[in-house]
């Protein structure tokens, strides 16, 4: 890697501007990472840790996800590292599985909302006119209703299954994605190269995918991180309220609710799933912050 970077330095000098892609995306990413602040490193390692835990959950967890292994509310011990919950299930095990369920569903939901909102946003940006107006007003209507209350209402209508949860939150969240992708897409859509593609006779899909999308990726990726946090928090909040992920599936939001009474007795156990949520949110924000700073052209001037 270093050798490659050294070889590239004269090239960069000769060309006299950023030529990082000469050396492939990996080298570029590594160069960026080396310059990343501590907060970004912290965020990346926390996210990495969560992902590892989520993937290998069955290997780490000492018991089954919904397995009743002891008495209710047992204290912390060697056998049950964080004690047991209201049904006698091991809390450590459920925390580990919770990473898998909560993060998995949140990632799925966020991706779905980006697919939907991003595609419609770009469509509105390229076509403009009445399609843009219609989509824009529809989004306004959806955004006018408080998101959490709207989600609660829809969930009680359609029933709180995981599928419904993912779909409802994805649709509600895609309104924000729509606004962003439309706004940044508009900036690119007025560029001459988009006009050149239209003059060439390119189809709409090609223009959206090949001309616009690559150019709006940086803000979209940054937004993905942020939206993931919100989706994650919404799911946790819905689960806490009992309409999110349903028992016996382990999930951090409902774990806080189920064990909330313990806090009255000075037991910090319910704070563990809450802390897990908080830590991931902070970590993702750290990474997003760094990423936005990298790509928005904001430079420290002094």
């Amino acid at each position: 890697m270093t050798l490659e970077a050294e070889r590239a330095v004269p090239v960069a000098r000769a060309v006299a501007f950023r030529a990082s892609r000469w050396r492939g995306p990996l080298a570029g990413a590594w160069r960026g990472l080396r310059k990343a602040p501590v907060s970004a490193w912290f965020g990346l390692s926390v996210i990495g840790g969560y992902l590892v835990v989520a993937v290998v959950a069955p290997l780490i967890a000492p018991y089954g996800e919904a397995q009743v292994v002891g008495n209710q509310y047992e204290a912390w011990s060697a056998q049950f590292p964080f004690g047991t919950d209201q049904l006698g299930r091991d809390l450590f095990t459920r925390l580990v599985y919770g990473a898998r369920n909560t993060i998995g569903i949140a990632v799925l939901t966020t991706m779905l909302s980006f697919l939907l909102g991003g595609a419609l946003g770009l469509l509105a940006a390229v076509l403009g006119g009445w399609i843009d107006q219609a989509l824009g007003r529809l989004v306004d209507v959806l955004m006018a209703i408080p998101q959490l209350i709207f989600a609660l209402m829809l969930l009680s209508i359609f029933g709180p299954s995981v599928k419904n949860l993912v779909l409802i939150i994805a649709v509600l969240d895609s309104t924000r994605v729509f606004r962003l992708s439309r706004a940044v897409g508009m900036n690119v859509a007025v560029m001459d190269f988009v006009e050149a593609a239209k003059l060439r006779g390119e189809r709409l899909g090609w223009i959206m995918r090949r001309e616009l999308l690559p150019n709006i990726m940086p803000p979209m990726v940054a937004e993905f991180g942020l939206r993931f946090c919100f989706v994650f928090l919404t799911i946790s909040a819905l689960s806490f309220l009992g309409l999110g992920i349903q028992p016996p599936t382990a999930d951090w939001g409902s774990m806080v609710r189920e064990n909330a009474t313990l806090i009255n007795y000075g037991d910090v156990t319910p704070l563990l799933p809450a802390g897990a949520i908080a830590l991931l949110t902070v970590a993702v924000n750290c990474v997003v912050d760094w990423f936005i700073h990298q790509t928005s052209g904001l430079r420290d001037e002094h």
Binding site: F193, A196, R200, R210, P214
Partner: peptide, 25 residues
């Protein structure tokens, strides 16, 4: 409404080469 052949025969070059080329291609 124009067919591909008549589009091909009439091309355009723009004032600002910075915005006329997709920076990601």
């Amino acid at each position: 409404d124009r067919d591909r052949e008549s589009l091909r025969r009439l091309q355009m070059i723009y004032q600002s080469p910075d915005t006329a080329l997709n920076p990601r291609q």
